[in-house]
C-alpha cells in the first residue's frame, strides 16, 4: 500500500529528470539515462521481477520521447533490470563498491543492447563510431546519479524482502 502512494512522486521525479533536467547537463554531448538507471536501481534493491517491471514501464515512458520503435527501450531496460536483479540475487555479500560497479557496467551494457536490438530492427542509424563513447560517458554519469536514484527507488518500493533466486 505504501508503495502505491510513493511510486507516483518518484516516477514524476525520474521523468522530470529525464526530460527536463538531464538534457541540459551533458558531458561531451552525452546525457545520463535516468530511466535505464531506474531499472538498474530496482534490480539492486528489489530483485529481478520488480526490476523487469520497473525497466519495462520506465522504458515505455522513455519511448514516448524518442522516435525509435515504441517498445525498444522497454525491451532493453526490462532485460537490463532483470539481469541486474539476477546478479544481485547471485551475489552473497554486497561490497560497498559493487552497486557502483554494477551501475556502470549495467548502464554501458544497456546502451549496447539498445543499439544492437535497434539495429536488428532496422534502425541502422543508431550504430556509429560514437556508441562506445556514449556508453562510457553515460555509464559514468549514471554512476554519479546512482546513489540518489537507488535511494529514491528503495523508498518508493518500500520495505522489500531480500531478493531470492528466481526459479
Amino acid at each position: 500500500m505504501t508503495s502505491v502512494i510513493r511510486v507516483p512522486p518518484v516516477a514524476l521525479l525520474v521523468v522530470a529528470l529525464h526530460t527536463a533536467v538531464l538534457p541540459h547537463l551533458r558531458l561531451f554531448g552525452v546525457g545520463a539515462d535516468v530511466m535505464l538507471l531506474a531499472a538498474i536501481a530496482a534490480g539492486l534493491v528489489a530483485g529481478p521481477r520488480q526490476a523487469a517491471w520497473t525497466g519495462f514501464l520506465a522504458g515505455l515512458i522513455a519511448d514516448c520521447f524518442t522516435r525509435t520503435p515504441f517498445g525498444l527501450s522497454a525491451l532493453t531496460y526490462c532485460l537490463v533490470g532483470y539481469g541486474v536483479g539476477l546478479l544481485r540475487v547471485g551475489v552473497l555479500e554486497m561490497s560497498w563498491w559493487l552497486p557502483t560497479a554494477i551501475t556502470f557496467v549495467g548502464s554501458a551494457l544497456g546502451v549496447v543492447t539498445f543499439v544492437a536490438l535497434g539495429t536488428m530492427m532496422g534502425q541502422e542509424y543508431l550504430w556509429s563510431w560514437r556508441v562506445p563513447m556514449i556508453a562510457g560517458v553515460l555509464a559514468l554519469l549514471n554512476m554519479a546519479l546512482g546513489p540518489l536514484i537507488v535511494k529514491s527507488i528503495r523508498w518508493a518500493l518500500g520495505p522489500v524482502s531480500e531478493p531470492r533466486p528466481v526459479r
Binding site: 538534457p23 554531448g29 552525452v30 546525457g31 524518442t66 522516435r67 525509435t68 546502451v111 542509424y125 556514449i134
Partner: peptide, 8 residues
C-alpha cells in the same frame, strides 16, 4: 526541449 535521447 533539447534532445532527450543520446541517439537523436
Amino acid at each position: 526541449s533539447t534532445p532527450v535521447s543520446n541517439f537523436e
